[in-house]
């Protein structure tokens, strides 16, 4: 733990210095999007990777975060106080919705949670379209943000996103290493066995569902700050699919993996969209990702980080075995 924490801290510090030494605004705001979607994908990993729950409506928590803050800021003054109030509202709503979704379906087979969240996200999207007076309908609305965040590619917002990412990364990692986290991983491995030991599975699964939803809503809050605009696309299935791709490609159940996945997807999206001028097929870059994703599910279900970890552990194990073998030989010789 000690060494990996050190590496993470160093990387975080390097990223913190970046906006002061490098001033390509497009790349900086892209890195910021990576932070935001890193938080989002990490929250997804908490469900999929650590508890084995599949959600197809994770976008709804993202959207709840985005709309809560946007509406609160829009209806009141654009001050830090209302930003915090909106964030609180986002957390509360996301907590309640994820609680309801969890209680309704987590005692059933895994399909049910996936279906229910998919349908719920659809419901939120329709609601956002219909409640025009609050949400501006399909077109969405531009909002005022507190003065300190007005410059969307300035260092303040960039650093805020980075800090939130780092804080939540360590919090969530601490959570997964806590006794509750261990139970969640045990549920992922063998539900019946955990139940027969005497744990109430429902309770733990609902906790995972709620924490994941709340963290995802925070990502939505940052997202709306970075765009200063919100529309119904935050509830779209594409957003959920992004989280899925990032988590699967990066590495399920590793926490770092989804963040790396977020980096890969965001940058690939950026570059492949540029290539659209070269050939129209690049406009449909999502097909490429879909195919990579399907292949990853079949052949590399552990993703980039997971596969690397596997190789690393195997090598370490072999080395250890080799050492022991030579030791045995030496002992036998003497």
């Amino acid at each position: 733990m000690g060494r990996s924490t050190g590496i993470y801290v160093i990387i975080a510090l390097l990223l913190a210095v970046l906006p002061f030494v490098y001033d390509d605004r497009i790349i900086l705001s892209l890195v910021m999007q990576v932070f935001i979607f890193g938080i989002f994908a990490m929250s997804y990993d908490l469900l999929l990777g650590f508890t084995g729950i599949v959600s197809f409506g994770h976008a709804m928590f993202f959207g709840i975060g985005a709309y809560s803050v946007a509406i609160v800021l829009n209806q009141n003054e654009a001050t830090l106080f209302y930003l915090l109030l909106g964030t609180l509202l986002a957390v509360a709503v996301a907590g309640i919705v994820s609680f309801i979704a969890g209680v309704l379906t987590l005692r059933l087979q895994s399909h049910f949670y996936a279906m229910l969240t998919l349908a719920l996200a659809g419901l939120f999207m329709v609601a956002a379209e219909k409640m025009r007076s609050l949400t501006g309908g399909n077109e969405g609305f531009v909002l005022m943000v507190p003065d300190m965040f007005i410059d969307t590619s300035g260092p303040t917002l960039y650093l805020t996103c980075l800090i939130v990412l780092v804080v939540f990364f360590f919090l969530v990692r601490r959570f997964t290493q806590s006794p509750v986290g261990k139970v969640l991983m045990a549920i992922r491995e063998n539900e019946q066995r955990v139940e027969s030991i005497g744990f109430s599975i429902m309770y733990y699964k609902v906790i995972a569902s709620m924490i994941s939803g709340i963290v995802a809503s925070i990502a939505g809050v940052l997202y709306v700050l970075s765009l200063q605009f919100v529309d119904t696309s935050v509830f779209a299935t594409d957003v959920t699919l992004d989280a899925l791709l990032m988590t699967i490609i990066g590495g399920v159940g590793t926490l770092v993996g989804p963040i790396i996945g977020a980096g890969i997807i965001e940058f690939a999206h950026h570059w492949l969209s540029d290539l659209a001028d070269v050939h129209w097929i690049f406009k449909r870059w999502i097909i490429l990702f879909g195919i990579v994703y399907i292949l990853a599910v079949i052949f590399f279900p552990r993703g980039i980080v997971g596969t690397l970890q596997e190789i690393w552990i195997k090598r370490k194990y072999k080395k250890q075995q080799g050492k022991e073998a030579t030791k045995d030989k030496n002992e036998a010789a003497s």
Binding site: L48, G52, V54, F56, Q109, S110, H111, A114, L241, L244, I248, R284, I286, I287, F289, G290, I291, Y293, I294, V297, I298, P301
Partner: peptide, 20 residues
């Protein structure tokens, strides 16, 4: 189950993009 759910949704993505 988990892999099935994940992979069929991925295929859904490919199918609808292929339509376009």
């Amino acid at each position: 189950h988990v892999q099935q759910i994940l992979i069929t949704l991925g295929f859904m993505l490919v199918l609808s993009e292929m339509l376009k």
